[in-house]
Write a protein that binds this DNA or RNA. Structure first.
Lengths: 169, 169
DNA sequence: GGGTCCTTACTCGGATATATCATGTCCGAGTTTTTGAGG
DNA sequence: CCTCAAAAACTCGGACATGATATATCCGAGTAAGGACCC
């Protein structure tokens, strides 16, 4: 039961991208610098988010990442699944069928109840993550920062590093 | 987001110990053979369960494992935490505090909202596991095996391998 | 025959190698910008 | 001065080392059972 550190980086990065004004962009290098993490490693996870159609990329100089859809339509679950993979944490190896005197497969048509219980728990976990949108997360973070110090630092960094989608011509 | 295979082995082993008659014992070797897994590896997890006071051990020849308390008082959560460790899956590294222009620690007195959301989900996960007792699991497994083939195989194996707690004198 | 002691064999417990996956890094393909020349 | 084209630089994307953790294993300490011996 362990989540990789990449999940935290991914969520923070998506949250930061969510506060950009319309058409704003940030490069992977800027996101990595702001969070103090390895650029190459963060890039790996940003690519996973991009492959999952959560982020859109703009190539070339002055390029970068932006959200692929409104922050209201991106949930924490989307991010976690994109980074960690869609497989459930508990994978039943069906060891009840192993051992001596193996019974015919027909005896195990009913699903393993242990597996079922574990998956029920995981379903609850995912439901809780699905209920939290990135937009909601941004509101909570802003409310918790009531003296505005964190927001000021973020804005200063954005002013120095923000980019814009090329004007379509 | 991945659980080790030891969890499945541990749950199956505890479930098997739960169907023993009063005072019954099973050795780690017998449990490993029945489930078709590495004895040494299963032993490792049984020791973890023993350290968590879920299982009691009887040393010496004709020794083995038994439940340390009634099956109604052992939950899936107990087993998972004993095997995987008590730390939550998501561990906030506080990367919001890192990066350039680090703010004073006083600015981050409020907990990280992202961490809070992840922990909420994990709390739901654990609550679901805590709601399932081993006794309940045994009932479900028995109900799912309506033609009795699985139970017969289990009983045959038990008759050949069961032991008993030494009569206290 | 009964009791006591000793040997023995089996158990769990912890320390030790190996495999696998997450972490961290690198180089290459692609695209936009920029810059220069030409008209 | 404007247009066009070519080169360059910066971006993301995927393939490649490294380290930590889970997996698998082995050997040692401890204990109850079984047997032999003595009373």
């Amino acid at each position: 039961m362990k989540l990789g550190d990449g999940v935290e980086q991914a969520v923070h990065s998506v949250t930061m991208l969510a506060v950009l004004p319309e058409g704003g962009l940030l490069s992977a290098a800027a996101l990595a610098e702001f969070h103090g993490v390895s650029p190459s490693y963060l890039l790996k996870h940003l690519q996973a988010l991009s492959a999952a159609n959560l982020l859109a990329t703009v190539p070339g100089p002055k390029g970068g990442y932006r959200l692929a859809r409104p922050a209201e339509d991106i949930t924490l679950l989307d991010i976690v699944l994109a980074v960690e993979g869609p497989e459930p944490a508990f994978r039943c190896k069906e060891i009840r069928q192993k051992g001596p005197n193996p019974l015919p497969k027909s005896a195990f048509q009913r699903p393993c109840q242990i597996n079922a219980a574990m998956l029920r728990a995981e379903r609850a976990y995912r439901a809780e993550l699905r209920a939290v949108t990135v937009a909601q997360l941004v509101r909570e973070v802003e409310e918790a920062d009531h003296d505005g110090a964190i927001a000021r630092r973020g804005c200063a960094f954005l002013d120095a590093n923000i980019r814009h989608t090329p004007t379509s011509r």
